[in-house]
Measured scan of single mutants.
Amino acid sequence: GGHPVTTQMVETVQNLAPNLHPEQIRYSLENTGSVEETVERYLRGDEFSFPP
């Protein structure tokens, strides 16, 4: 991942996926670069990993 992630982006995802840890959200956003894509992954039931 190398996309810039803002606190705003993390908070937006958190509102839609409250049971995800912020670190999981941030890591996913760094890989996708997209709030929409991260939320899609969540709704699909994809696994969210923590940063290594």
Rank of each mutant, 00 (worst) to 15 (best):
G1I: 12
G1Q: 13
G1N: 12
G1W: 14
G1R: 12
G2F: 14
H3F: 14
H3S: 10
H3M: 10
P4F: 15
P4E: 13
P4I: 15
P4V: 15
V5M: 04
V5A: 05
V5N: 04
V5R: 02
T6G: 04
T6N: 08
T6Y: 06
T7G: 09
T7C: 14
Q8G: 10
Q8M: 12
M9S: 04
M9E: 06
M9N: 04
M9H: 04
M9D: 09
V10F: 09
V10D: 00
V10Q: 06
E11A: 12
E11G: 07
T12Y: 15
T12M: 15
Q14E: 05
Q14L: 13
N15A: 15
N15Y: 13
N15T: 12
N15E: 13
N15R: 15
L16D: 03
L16F: 12
A17E: 01
P18K: 08
N19V: 06
N19L: 12
N19W: 09
N19I: 07
L20N: 01
H21V: 07
H21S: 14
P22Q: 08
E23P: 02
E23T: 09
E23D: 15
Q24H: 02
Q24R: 01
Q24C: 07
Q24E: 04
I25M: 00
I25K: 01
I25E: 03
R26K: 11
R26Q: 08
Y27I: 05
Y27M: 07
Y27R: 05
S28E: 04
S28H: 06
S28I: 05
S28V: 04
L29C: 04
L29A: 00
L29R: 00
E30P: 00
E30L: 11
N31D: 11
N31Q: 15
N31I: 15
T32H: 04
T32V: 03
T32P: 01
G33D: 03
G33F: 07
S34T: 06
V35D: 01
E36V: 10
E36Q: 13
E37H: 07
E37N: 07
E37T: 09
T38K: 00
V39I: 15
V39S: 05
E40D: 11
E40T: 13
R41N: 07
R41P: 02
Y42C: 00
Y42I: 05
Y42L: 05
Y42H: 03
Y42P: 00
Y42E: 01
L43Q: 09
L43P: 00
L43A: 07
L43K: 10
R44V: 04
G45A: 04
G45W: 02
G45N: 05
D46C: 14
D46Y: 12
D46W: 12
D46R: 05
D46G: 07
E47Q: 13
E47N: 12
F48T: 01
F48H: 01
F48C: 03
F48K: 00
S49M: 14
F50G: 02
F50S: 04
F50Y: 10
P51M: 06
P51C: 05
P51Y: 09
P51H: 05
P51W: 04
P52T: 08
P52H: 08
P52W: 09
P52I: 08
P52L: 09
P52C: 08
